[in-house]
C-alpha cells in the first residue's frame, strides 16, 4: 500500500510540475523572442510580467467554447483531449534524479521504471498525431484539413528519423531503460571531458535535434500551422479551452523532447556536485538545466530561421536524414563490436 501512495505522490508532483513549467515556458518564449527582436515582452501583469501565464490561462478558460455547425461534434471535442493526454503520459518514464533513501525506503525519481522506456516515449509521441488529424477532419474546414494532412505526413516521416537517431545511444547502453542509458554515460574521457553520448553520437544528436523540431511542429518546421498560408492550420476552428489544450500539448511535447535529448545525449541528471546541495536535488538541478538549454535552443531557432517549404522538409527527411541515421547505426555497431 505504501508503494501505491508513493507512486500517487510522484504522479501528483509530476503533473503539477509539468503544467507549471509549461505555463512559464510561454512566458519564457515571449521574453526570449522579444529580446531577440529588440522588444520588452510581457511586463504589465505582476512584477516583470510574471503573472502573464495565469492571466492567459484564465482568459482562455472563460472564453466561449465554439463548435462549428457542420463539424463532427464528437471528433471535434475529442481531438484536443487526444492531443493532450499522450503528451502528459510520456512523463511517466522520465527520470529526474538518482535514487535516494527516505526512512529506509528506496525511492526512484521516476513514476514507472519500465525497461522499454525509450520506445514508450516514441510510441506516445506517435499517438499524439491523432489529436491533430481528428481536429483537422472534425472541424470541416479546408485549412484545418490541409494542416492536419501536412502534420500527419510530417510526423510519420520524422518519427522514423527520430527513432533511428536514438538507436546509437541504445546500442552504447545496451538497454532501452532511461536510467541505464544515463548510467552508461558516467565517467570522463581523458580526465575532464564528460563521457556523454553527445561526443560519440554527434551525428545521432544532430539528427535527433532536427527531427525533434519537426516532430513537435515547431519553427522552422511548423508547416502544419503556417500562419501565412493556412491561417492557423489544424486548430483554426478551436477557441477557449480546446485551443488551450493543443497549445499545452505542443509545449509539453517540447519539454518531453528536451528531456529525451538531455537523458540520451547529455547524461541526464549526471553532473558535478554543487556544494551544500544534497545529491538527489543536485541531479534534478542538472537535469532541469540541460532541459532549459534545449528549450532556449527552440526559441532561438524560432526567431532566427524562416519557415521551410513543405517539399524541402519531406525530402530532407527521406533523402538526407534517414540514410545518415542508418549509416550512424552501422558505424556505431562496427565500433561497438571491434573497438
Amino acid at each position: 500500500m505504501a508503494e501505491f501512495f508513493i507512486t500517487l505522490i510522484k504522479i501528483i508532483v509530476l503533473f503539477g510540475g509539468v503544467l507549471t513549467v509549461m505555463a512559464y515556458l510561454t512566458y519564457f518564449e515571449r521574453k526570449v523572442v522579444a529580446r531577440m527582436q529588440s522588444r520588452i515582452g510581457p511586463n504589465r501583469t505582476g512584477p516583470i510580467g510574471l503573472m502573464q501565464p495565469l492571466a492567459d490561462g484564465l482568459k482562455l478558460l472563460t472564453k466561449e467554447p465554439f463548435v462549428p455547425r457542420r463539424a463532427d461534434k464528437v471528433v471535434f471535442l475529442l481531438a484536443p483531449v487526444l492531443a493532450f493526454i499522450p503528451a502528459l503520459l510520456t512523463w511517466a518514464v522520465v527520470p529526474f534524479g538518482p535514487d535516494f533513501t527516505v526512512l529506509g525506503r528506496k525511492i526512484s525519481m521516476v513514476v514507472a521504471d519500465v525497461n522499454v522506456a525509450l520506445i514508450y516515449m516514441l510510441a506516445m509521441s506517435s499517438v499524439g498525431v491523432y489529436g491533430i488529424i481528428m481536429a483537422g477532419w472534425g472541424s470541416n474546414n479546408k485549412y484545418a484539413v490541409m494542416g492536419a494532412l501536412r502534420s500527419s505526413a510530417q510526423v510519420i516521416s520524422y518519427e522514423v528519423a527520430l527513432g533511428l537517431s536514438l538507436i546509437g545511444t541504445i546500442m552504447i547502453a545496451g538497454s532501452l531503460n532511461l536510467g541505464d542509458i544515463i548510467h552508461a554515460q558516467q565517467g570522463t574521457y581523458v580526465g575532464f571531458v564528460p563521457r556523454w553520448n553527445v561526443i560519440p553520437q554527434i551525428v545521432g544528436f544532430t539528427l535527433f535535434l532536427t527531427s525533434a523540431i519537426a516532430e513537435t511542429n515547431r519553427a522552422p518546421f511548423d508547416l502544419p500551422e503556417a500562419e501565412s498560408e493556412l491561417v492557423a492550420g489544424y486548430h483554426v476552428e478551436y477557441s477557449g479551452f480546446g485551443f488551450a489544450m493543443f497549445f499545452l500539448a505542443e509545449y509539453i511535447n517540447m519539454l518531453t523532447v528536451s528531456a529525451v535529448a538531455s537523458v540520451a545525449f547529455l547524461g541526464g541528471w549526471l553532473g558535478p556536485a554543487i556544494p551544500f546541495v544534497p545529491a538527489p536535488i543536485n541531479g534534478v538541478v542538472w537535469m532541469l538545466l540541460k532541459m532549459s538549454i534545449f528549450i532556449f535552443f527552440y526559441f532561438w531557432l524560432r526567431s532566427t530561421l524562416p519557415r521551410f517549404r513543405y517539399d524541402q522538409l519531406m525530402s530532407l527527411c527521406w533523402k538526407v536524414m534517414l540514410p545518415l541515421a542508418l549509416l550512424n547505426i552501422l558505424v556505431t555497431g562496427i565500433v561497438k563490436l571491434f573497438v
Binding site: V114, L122, A123, S126, V127, I133, S152, I156
Partner: peptide, 21 residues
C-alpha cells in the same frame, strides 16, 4: 511491455494513421 509498446508504435502510431490519411 515490449510487444505492447510496439503495438502502439507500429499499429496505432503508423499504420492506422496511414489508414486515416
Amino acid at each position: 511491455y515490449f510487444v505492447a509498446v510496439i503495438q502502439v508504435l507500429v499499429y496505432t502510431g503508423a499504420i492506422l494513421v496511414l489508414f486515416l490519411f
